[in-house]
């Protein structure tokens, strides 16, 4: 489906994952305790394995756009 005459959002899946990870990180940043652990736990519980693999790969490739807490959270993922 072409939509060339319209200027709509065209984000890639990876960009979306970064946005999502950052959103999660911003929540846990305000919480008492270990923010990165919170991020990791949340992502482990709600993201499917492929999404987790992508964000880990993205982080491994420099993690462009990832907030520090998000980066730490991704790094803390055990699966």
């Amino acid at each position: 489906m072409s939509a060339s005459d319209e200027d709509h959002i065209a984000t890639t899946s990876d960009e979306r994952l970064v946005v999502m990870a950052n959103q999660i990180a911003r929540f846990f940043a305000s919480q008492p305790g270990d923010a990165a652990a919170g991020v990791a736990k949340h992502i482990a519980a709600y993201w499917d394995p492929r999404m987790r693999a992508h964000i880990r790969a993205h982080a491994a490739a420099g993690g462009a756009g990832l907030d520090p807490i998000a980066s730490d959270g991704v790094a803390a993922l055990t699966r």
């Binding site: 899946s13 979306r16 519980a45 709600y46 993201w47 499917d48 394995p49 492929r50 999404m51």
Partner: peptide, 18 residues
């Protein structure tokens, strides 16, 4: 035992071709 895809993630994954 792994969580699956949520609707928007399904659509993202579809656009990604998987």
């Amino acid at each position: 035992d792994e969580p699956g895809l949520r609707i928007p993630n399904m659509l993202d994954a579809a656009v990604d071709g998987v």
